[in-house]
Write a protein that binds this DNA or RNA. Structure first.
Length: 268
DNA sequence: CATATGTCCTGAGAGC
DNA sequence: TGCTCTCAGGACATAT
């Protein structure tokens, strides 16, 4: 998503609109009138990412943070429908560009931070990014937890950027049982896990993400991803493991689906 | 303090 | 066909 938004770097925000939609409005802070006053005329200095958040760093030092959550999209192209369009930033210059925040389910948020406020806000919520963290750091943060490793991977304060789908995929690649308590993992397991996380996230990014049957993920140009065709376990309950042929199993941990291969992912 | 649960939301799909 | 029910999961508030 971030990569697809690179074309807006250097652009000036010309207009800010909150399209009227029949559904309940999403959380926008500050409310639209004040947001518009603070954004119009500002230059987008850079498009950044922190964990699952997308950040427009403005030349003033302010930051506009998008949290797409499950169904939110940040687009430079026509959205899947007009009904769930939540915010529109028109950008001056050629070619004409508009950044759209579209969110079918409406759990996403948009928030503006004054200069200097964002680092503190993020540091309260996010651990190191999954693409940067060392295995030692991950082990230090989670190694004494009694939580199941799959559940712990979803804790953004411990490790930022891993959601339900990629947690299952990484644990498969690492050969770890998702139910294993973090405290049962040895250094070699943390090493394998961090390596697997990096591999899964890089692969997924290369394939433009996972567009599930009931999911809505699209890249910034509203194109579907293809990583769902490469999933090793997610959404594959009852199908044969691509590595050993065993039937992939589904279980529920912390109210979320976990998929795993009972043969390739042994208890530690 | 660490961990667990409830809540929000909409649309897809199942079952009848 | 149309209704009701369940489920999807990210972040955060509240409970244990």
């Amino acid at each position: 998503m971030r990569r697809g938004l690179a074309p807006i770097e250097g652009r000036v925000i010309a207009a800010v609109q909150q399209p009227r939609c029949r559904c309940r409005p999403i959380s926008i802070n500050p409310p639209i009138a004040r947001l518009r006053r603070r954004l119009v005329g500002q230059t987008v200095a850079a498009v950044q990412r922190c964990g699952k958040r997308l950040i427009l760093a403005l030349a003033s030092g302010e930051s506009l943070v998008f949290e797409p959550r499950m169904t939110g999209l940040v687009l430079l192209a026509a959205p899947p429908d007009e009904e769930h369009l939540r915010l529109r930033l028109d950008l001056a210059g050629q070619p004409p560009l508009a950044l759209l925040f579209w969110d079918r389910r409406g759990l996403g948020t948009v928030r503006l931070f004054a200069a200097g406020e964002l680092p503190h806000w993020l540091s309260e919520r996010l651990g190191p990014d999954a693409l940067n963290i060392s295995w030692q750091a991950l082990s230090d943060r989670l190694g004494r937890s009694r939580r199941a490793v799959k559940v712990a991977l979803l804790d953004q304060r411990a490790l930022a950027g891993v959601g339900n789908l990629y947690a299952s995929e990484a644990l498969f690649l690492a050969g770890l049982d998702p139910r294993a308590p973090c405290s049962s993992l040895a250094p070699k397991h943390w090493r394998r896990l961090v390596s697997a996380l990096r591999r899964v996230l890089r692969e997924a990014i290369r394939h433009e993400g996972s567009t599930l049957a009931d999911g809505t993920y699209r890249n910034a140009l509203n194109q579907t991803g293809t990583y769902q065709n490469h999933h090793r376990v997610y959404n594959r309950a009852g199908l044969p493991c691509r590595r050993c042929g065993s039937s992939i199993e589904r279980l529920v941990q912390a109210q979320r689906s976990t998929y795993f291969c009972p043969r390739c992912q042994q208890p530690v």
